[in-house]
Every structure is written in structure tokens, then in C-alpha cells.
Nucleic acid binder design. Structure first.
Lengths: 215, 215
DNA sequence: TCCATTGGATAGTCTCGCTCTCCAATATTA
DNA sequence: TAATATTGGAGAGCGAGACTATCCAATGGA
């Protein structure tokens, strides 16, 4: 365990904590006071830390993802779904009222519906991302700066293009095996998102410097 | 105060908490036990909640943003910068070692440098988004799925296009006044990001359904 | 006049994500 | 062989973050 800690950079106490929480499977015990941890453990540990530190996911969400990952009966599409639900909107369940009598929310929801219908995207009705999108559009309306149809469509087009490439880039199941596909999928959903977000922020900084003259 | 609570949907105790923390400016006192809160307070409160619930920002970060917003000497570009720093990478300061002897980090940093140089983006060396991008690329390398030059460039192109439209869409300073520009800017950085993220996730779900066959 | 409400201050609560302390059973080493 | 160190496991403790609850004296409205 000390070696696993050294190789991963994660403190021993934290590894124990993850083991207790079921995030990390126990090593194969060689004796009552000794267990072996292999490369699988190292990779799993790195996955946990990446999701946590870069993806910003709470451990509970990571745990849910890993449960789906370890369940061999979960197919690729369902796994992606599990990741999406785990990543969720970071909205609290008790947060702002869902659609209840709020005209901005209603309008945002209608906009989302028509956008998705127009694009023909196959999206489940209860997808967390749909809630997140609706909430963001509702907040923009409330702030007096609604994101209108064509503007929104541009974003959707950009997002669609990237997502298409990402999903197409996932390895085939027979080729990479479940483990490979899964790691690529989880990685794709969470890490690529941060790449995109970071690039957008950098581009904003550049554009802002050009328009407003940065120092 | 009770009215402000009712109109915003935020509990009175929470409003008091925000007042104490300086997130919300005190109302104009009409008597020792009574103060008036106007539409400014309502808008500010909505901004706080939007940044918090949808943007997922901690109150400390929101506080930093609002301080910059209320400082009339902060220009548009500096304000955008303040937002970027506040939004930051959600990376802990003590998180994974910055560049220290980690070959994956080194490679990622080099990739970021050459990408930005190639695009000619004017980005400050210490921008948090740069750190986030480097961290994400390093994690992808560690996971054995590095995001290569051309692939990365595609993301940058997409991000650049969106950012250009966003910054171009900000109102002019004389026209909208500081308050309008500021709210649009903060909103743009934080809320549009969630819109993009949500759309990408929805697009992923659609693509995944098409490729792997949903349900 | 009298009770509910307000602003203000203090303290308590709840969740996260660790971190610390113990402990008995080994390994390791002198 | 004896002394010391380490390991895995379990429990309690801790510090940050975001509220929430309780008091309190001064009003304000019926």
C-alpha cells in the first residue's frame, strides 16, 4: 500500500478512505496484514483523482460512475448515461423550483424542447443535462439577456460537432474490450469537457484583450 | 426584507447571511429596524444565485467577482480577468504538483504553449484556464489517451469561434453603461459555459444512442 | 397599548473529504 | 529470538463551506 501511495502520490490514509468507501477495490490479500495492489489499482486511483480534481466531481458521483463501470451488464450507451447522471447538473435537488409557475423557466423549457425537436436529437426526457440547459437559459432570461433561437442553435451546432467526433472516436467494443472503451468514455465525457471549457476561457481572454485592450 | 425574500425565493436567514458576508450591499436604512431593498438588490441576489446554483461557484469566488464588479476603476478587460481568476480551475492549490518533474505535465504544458503560440492568442502566462487546460491534457496523457495536435486544434477552433461571437456580442460601454456591460460579461463567462456544457452532453447522449443503440 | 416583525449578532447544524489514532497481526532486522 | 516497524482495518475527529436557528432590543402597525 505504501508503494501504491508513492506511485500515485495519494496519501496512504486517503487510499484507506477510498477502500472503505468502495471507490477502490481491495487488493488481493497475501497475508492477514499484507495485500498486493497492481497496476489496475494504480489506474483506478488515477481515474478517481482525475475525475475529482479536474472534473470537479464529488466522491459520491465518482462512486456511482465506478459502480456502473464495474458492472459488466451495463452496455456502452447505459454507461454513458450513468456518467451523465452522475455528473449531473451540480444543482441541488432542493434548488430552484422545477418549472413550477416560473414563466422564465417555462419559456426556457419550451425553447429547449423546440431546439431538440428541430435537431432531431434523441435525448431522454429526464436527462440531467436537459435540466441544466433549461436552468441556464432560464437564468439568462431572468437576467434580461435571453439566448435566442439562432444564437442557441449556433451553440448546439458547435456542441453537436464536437460530440459527434468524440463518440465516433471511441474505440470499438471488440477491439478495445470493455475496460478500454469504458475508460475512454468516462474520460471523454469528463476530461474533454474541461479541455473545451478551458479553451473557451482562453479564447475569451484573447478576444477581450483585442476588443478592450489588455494592458 | 421579507418582501425581498418573497420576490427572490431566497430565505430571509440566507439574505442576512449574504449581507453579513458583504455579498449583498445593505439596504438604505429608513429607521433603526427597517431598511429598503430595491430592484438592485433583487438583481444582485439573482446574480448571486445564478452564479452559485448554475455556475457552481463557491461564495468566496462570487464575492471576489462582485468586488471587482463594484469597483468602478476596473475596466472591462480586467473585469473579465477577475471573473476568470474567480472561476479558476476548481483545482486545489495543493493539488497535483505543478509541472514538478512530471513528464506528462511537461508534455501537456509544451502542447498548450505551442497551440497558443500557433493561434496567436494573447493569453497571460498565469491564467487559471491555462493551468486547467494543462492539467486536463496531462490527465489524458496519464490515462493513455493523449489529445493530439490536430484534435486539440479542432477544439480550440470551436472554442475560439464561440468566444469571438460572445465577446463581440457584449454591448458597448457607453451604450449599456458599466452595470449592463458587467452583468452581460459575468453572465457570458459563467452561464454560457453551462449552456455549452449542457448542449455537448445532450449531443453526446444523442450520438451515443445512434452508435450504441439506446435502450 | 401590545404583539409581530426587523436588523443585527452568535452559535449550531449538516455535508464533504479527508486525517488521526488505535489496534492486533505480522514482517523485518538486529 | 527478541525488538522494532509496518500493514490493513475501524473509529473518531477535523476544518471548510453554506446555511439555519436562536436571541435580542428597537420599532411599526392594528
Amino acid at each position: 500500500m505504501a508503494e501504491l501511495s508513492r506511485r500515485s502520490g495519494v496519501p496512504v490514509a486517503t487510499i484507506k478512505f477510498y477502500l472503505r468507501g468502495g471507490l477502490l477495490p481491495p487488493g488481493t490479500a497475501t497475508a492477514a496484514t499484507r495485500a498486493r495492489y497492481g497496476d489496475d489499482h494504480l489506474r483506478r486511483l488515477r481515474l478517481i483523482r482525475a475525475l475529482q480534481e479536474i472534473g470537479g466531481l464529488p466522491l459520491a458521483a465518482i462512486s456511482r460512475i465506478l459502480t456502473a463501470v464495474d458492472d459488466a451488464s451495463v452496455g456502452p450507451h447505459a454507461l454513458l448515461g450513468a456518467v451523465q447522471y452522475a455528473v449531473g447538473p451540480r444543482l441541488d435537488p432542493d434548488a430552484s423550483d422545477p418549472d413550477a409557475s416560473d414563466p422564465d423557466w417555462q419559456a426556457a423549457a419550451a425553447e429547449v424542447d423546440s431546439l431538440l425537436a428541430g435537431l432531431g436529437w434523441r435525448v431522454s426526457a429526464g436527462a440531467p443535462a436537459r435540466t441544466l440547459l433549461t436552468a441556464a437559459l432560464a437564468a439568462l432570461r431572468r437576467a434580461g439577456a435571453p439566448l435566442a433561437g439562432p444564437g442557441l442553435a449556433e451553440y448546439a451546432a458547435a456542441a453537436g460537432g464536437l460530440a459527434a467526433r468524440e463518440v465516433a472516436g471511441l474505440p470499438d467494443l471488440p477491439a478495445a474490450g470493455r475496460a478500454g472503451l469504458i475508460e475512454a468514455a468516462v474520460t471523454g465525457v469528463v476530461l474533454y469537457e474541461q479541455v473545451l471549457v478551458a479553451l473557451r476561457r482562453l479564447a475569451q481572454e484573447d478576444q477581450s484583450a483585442r476588443r478592450f485592450g489588455g494592458r
